[in-house]
């Protein structure tokens, strides 16, 4: 190989300098792209799995860097860790001083709370616990008196975010950012890759994805499969639809994996923050595309809770979002639909 390069160098000296420069320039750019190789990082975080693929000429980022990002995020946002910042907020009577992660997540959450007229609400935590989807194990269903007393703690209007302080107006208010933190984590990692000069990547945490560029050496768009809902908690899902996205975030919220079986009843994990009861509608899963994963992830839950017609109406006024729905028709058949913008990405 060395010898060949020498030969080629000799040859090129015969060429005219001008054409040599143009050729060399175009050639190296092409060569740089074809030399991109995939680097893959996978692991466990936030109670689920993550998978990162970035395309680069050499290894730029390694697993310990990613794992330390996750551990920073946990220290801030994990309700499963009793010493995390969010847990300290939940235990406190009045509030805590935030860090960057908690501030950004709460800020976006409050914005989505307002935008969705309270359908998305991070203060729903006490109800989530009472219905058995939280950190505490419960064996019975809450009665109406319990729900009534918990509702007094619920409502994002009881939160105040002023610069670095997150305060609560009622001591019993607790927050749970699980519906949005994964999307946020995806953004944090995607931004980290970009800061390191990576322009082609896919970041996936627990089924929430952000993607940029193409994959190499094939030089083709990256494809994302949308899962077919499964009947039960263990069945491995197959792919319902495949989309190709050059840049942006795709997240999914589903009613099919998180539920409690109490006797013959399936209790949905979607809780109406206003009534305190779980709600059930025809939607089985909602996949949202947006610029950032935090936005997509925040809205997928809200859209799922709204039900199909309200969600479609909402999306008419929110052009920054596109969505794909899998739902059950009144005759029991499972079908899908999407916003016009979403169809463009389907393969």
């Amino acid at each position: 190989m060395c010898r060949m390069q020498v030969k080629r160098l000799k040859k090129v000296t015969l060429w005219r300098l001008g054409s040599l420069l143009t050729m060399l320039f175009g050639f190296t750019q092409f060569q740089q792209l074809t030399e991109l190789k995939p680097f893959q990082l996978t692991g466990l975080a936030q109670g689920t799995t993550y998978a990162i693929t970035y395309y680069s000429q050499r290894e730029i980022i390694q697993k310990p860097q990613i794992d330390s990002i996750f551990s920073r995020l946990d220290q801030s946002l994990s309700i499963y860790s009793p010493t995390s910042l969010i847990s300290r907020f939940n235990q406190s009577a009045t509030g805590v001083e935030t860090d960057m992660h908690l501030r950004q997540v709460v800020q976006k959450s409050l914005a989505i709370f307002n935008e969705t007229a309270g359908v998305f609400d991070i203060t729903v935590h006490p109800l989530v616990n009472a219905w058995g989807f939280g950190t505490e194990k419960v064996t019975t269903l809450p009665d109406s008196a319990t729900i009534k007393s918990l509702l007094a703690c619920v409502g994002s209007e009881k939160l105040r975010l002023n610069q670095n302080w997150l305060r609560k107006t009622v001591p019993c208010t607790r927050i749970d950012v699980n519906g949005i933190a994964q999307g946020y984590s995806v953004d944090v990692i995607a931004n980290y890759l970009e800061k390191h000069g990576i322009r082609n990547y896919m970041v996936e945490v627990g089924g929430e994805i952000r993607v940029k560029g193409r994959k190499y050496p094939q030089n083709t768009p990256m494809s994302i499969g949308i899962e077919t809902p499964t009947k039960n908690e263990f069945e491995s899902a197959s792919i319902q639809t495949v989309i190709e996205v050059n840049q942006g975030a795709v997240t999914t919220s589903g009613n099919y994996r998180k539920y409690r079986q109490v006797g013959p009843n399936r209790i949905s994990h979607i809780i109406n923050p206003k009534t305190g009861y779980t709600s059930q509608n025809e939607l089985i899963s909602v996949t949202v595309m947006a610029h950032d994963a935090i936005i997509a992830d925040g809205y997928d839950n809200a859209l799922l809770a709204m039900g199909l017609s309200q969600a479609l109406a909402f999306l008419k006024h929110h052009q920054n979002l596109d969505a794909y729905f899998i739902y059950q028709k009144s005759n029991g058949a499972i079908t899908d639909t999407a916003t016009a913008g979403f169809y463009k990405f389907m393969r």
Binding site: L44, G47, T48, T49, A51, T53, Q182, M202, E204, G206, G207, E208, I209, V211, K215, M222, S223, I224, G225, I226, E227, P229, E233, F234, E235, S236, A237, S238, I239, V242, V250, T251, T252, S253, G254, N255, Y256, R257, K258, S285, T287
Partner: peptide, 26 residues
């Protein structure tokens, strides 16, 4: 219950979006 991991098209796509899978189910 242990699921078979056959019948999916995961091999043919680069990523999959879906409701969060708990680690234990994989």
């Amino acid at each position: 219950i242990y699921a078979e991991s056959t019948n999916n098209a995961k091999g043919t796509v680069d990523g999959v979006t879906g409701a969060t899978l708990a680690v234990t189910t994989q």
